[in-house]
């Protein structure tokens, strides 16, 4: 338990260790700790920002969805309207076409009837002529009585 040079030796050793600790041990460790603290703080801030942004995005998404639904229903309504329009137009066109066809058919029928009447008239006149010919035999000359026969045909 003698007090001796060890005292001074320990003091010097102490200062040397403190010096080296101060120069090469403490600063890098503290630097890393501070940096990590900063990174954690940044990370937390970023997380909060992310959460906020997500909230906004959700809101935006909901808005977009709503808009899209509205647009869809509008388009649907328009489409329905257009469809009924098209159907109406088609009906109209069909009616018109039908009428046109009917008119044409009627005209044709009338023409046909007319032609048949004409034909019939001609045949009737021929039959009448033949009948008259048989009745009158020689008395009646086709060429001399042509005017009478034509008049007869016209009267049928």
């Amino acid at each position: 338990m003698n007090i001796n040079l060890t005292l001074i030796g320990q003091s010097i050793t102490f200062f040397i260790f403190v010096f080296f600790c101060m120069k090469v041990v403490w600063p890098p460790i503290m630097h890393a700790l501070d940096e990590r603290k900063k990174r954690i703080a940044d990370g937390l801030a970023a997380a909060e920002r992310g959460a906020h942004e997500q909230e906004l995005a959700e809101k935006r998404a909901a808005e977009k969805l709503h808009e899209a639904k509205q647009q869809a229903s509008e388009i649907l309504a328009q489409a329905n309207k257009r469809a009924s329009e098209i159907v109406d137009e088609a009906k109209e066109a069909a009616t018109e076409e039908g009428n046109r066809l009917k008119t044409a058919a009627e005209a044709e029928i009338e023409q046909e009837v007319h032609r048949a009447k004409e034909e019939l008239r001609k045949q009737v006149s021929a039959v009448a002529l033949a009948g008259a010919n048989k009745v009158l035999k020689k008395e009646v000359d086709a060429s001399t009585h042509k005017a009478v026969l034509d008049d007869l045909i016209a009267q049928i």
């Binding site: 007090i3 001796n4 005292l7 001074i8 030796g9 320990q10 003091s11 050793t13 102490f14 200062f15």
Partner: peptide, 12 residues
């Protein structure tokens, strides 16, 4: 347990 050591540090 050596007073020189403890006093050495305390004096520093």
């Amino acid at each position: 347990t050596d007073p020189n050591i403890t006093f050495g540090m305390a004096i520093a």
